Amino acid sequence: MNKLLEIQNLTVGYDAKPEVLKGVSLSVYERDFLGIIGPNGGGKTTLLKTILGLIKPSVGTITFFDEGRSVPDINIGYLPQINQIDKKFPISVSQVILSGLTPSGRLFKRYTLADREQVKRVAGQLGIEPLLDKPIGELSGGQLQRVLLGRAIIDNPKLIILDEPSSYVDKLFETNFYKLLGELNKEIAIILVSHDVGTVLSMVKNIACVNEGLHYHSGADISNEWLLAAYDSCPVEILGHGSLPHRVVLDHTVDANSKKA
């Protein structure tokens, strides 16, 4: 299977904390479904922003590939945390999904009839076509997540990155949402970041724990021993419950000065 991106010896930080990530290496392949877990402040979001080109690493490289050849970049769709979205902004569902398109060869974003037909196709695929004319302020959390996913996939990306997609939605929607991701994964590679270890393990093909460094595990059948080693000072256990298992965090000491990356 062809490689999509390769991270080598990555170190990333900020003025206040120069090594949020240190010595991180990782490869992602076509139609991979990679789950990224880790404690708050471990660097998960920093890793995503670096892959997306929003942060420059102080050390290391990220190389992208297209059909086995090194390229400057690849088309990546991004679904942010839902609490980063201003639902009061006066924009409709169709406009949000359209904004995910990059009009090829056009200086200004003048969308064509074909673009708008593509919005309808994606909305139909996600079950939100009846919502296209609604303002986003009228949507439930689950509906808004589907709209944001539509924005992420409309430009036919090779990879989509989802940052805590199950936040602020109910469990029934979450189950259906992950089924939808499973269908998309037949054609698109996915990186899913979540604090919910149990849910991640029920969905993904491979797993990585980010806690300054990166622990990679091929396959999602992992042991408590691996989790303990990966989380270091933040041990966890997994309990099964219905179709989606849930995370149980054991008693541990948390540094009051730590911040979410």
Results as ranks from 00 to 15, higher is better:
24 V>C: 01
61 T>P: 03
8 Q>D: 08
245 P>H: 08
138 E>T: 11
107 L>T: 13
5 L>C: 02
98 L>P: 01
58 S>W: 06
40 N>Q: 09
227 L>G: 05
98 L>V: 06
198 G>M: 09
123 A>Q: 09
110 R>M: 13
130 P>F: 07
44 K>C: 06
22 K>T: 10
160 I>M: 03
208 A>F: 01
53 G>W: 05
253 T>R: 15
133 D>R: 07
109 K>D: 11
159 L>I: 05
156 N>V: 05
160 I>A: 01
187 E>V: 00
152 A>L: 08
238 I>M: 05
157 P>W: 08
199 T>I: 14
75 N>V: 10
191 I>F: 01
107 L>A: 14
115 D>E: 07
184 L>Q: 04
179 K>C: 04
128 I>D: 04
12 V>S: 02
56 K>E: 12
224 N>S: 13
179 K>H: 13
203 M>C: 14
111 Y>W: 14
51 I>D: 00
140 S>Y: 06
114 A>N: 12
260 K>C: 07
183 E>F: 05
78 Y>D: 00
167 S>Y: 03
148 L>W: 04
100 G>M: 03
259 K>A: 07
18 P>H: 07
234 C>P: 00
201 L>M: 12
150 G>L: 02
101 L>Q: 06
52 L>G: 04
114 A>P: 00
164 E>G: 07
63 T>H: 11
256 A>E: 15
50 T>M: 03
105 G>R: 12
242 G>N: 11
15 D>I: 12
28 V>I: 15
231 Y>F: 14
69 R>L: 08
13 G>M: 09
139 L>N: 02
261 A>W: 02
242 G>T: 12
34 L>K: 08
235 P>Y: 10
55 I>Y: 08
143 Q>V: 03
43 G>E: 02
189 A>L: 03
61 T>M: 09
209 C>F: 04
176 N>G: 12
190 I>T: 02
